[in-house]
Amino acid sequence: MSQSEWPLWEVFIRSKQGLDHKHVGSLHAADAAMAIQNARDVYTRRMEGVSIWVVESRHIHASNPDDAAAFFDPANDKVYRHPTFYQVPDSIKHM
């Protein structure tokens, strides 16, 4: 039975021109064309999108949440990457 299950696709929608495509959920479809068609019906019934991407779920690779602490740690102690780290004299404008 599970042999005949349509593959799973992840759906990304651009809500309006100028914005990124954003993940909204997933659905089953036999191929990409059907996935886009179904995504239109499932995720944009109220004009939520102007563009749809679909990616077969098996092609998505993700970081491991168990390693999240160590993986993202290197960014944690580099406060000098943020503009608020620097003191700017009050009299200096446009910076």
């Binding site: 599970s2 005949s4 799973l8 959920g25 997933s26 089953h28 499932v42």
Partner: peptide
């Protein structure tokens, strides 16, 4: 369909 796809993220199969 939204809900089935949420359940599938937990490893449940649609079929």
């Amino acid at each position: 369909l939204y809900l089935y796809s949420a359940a599938e993220t937990l490893g449940a199969s649609r079929d």
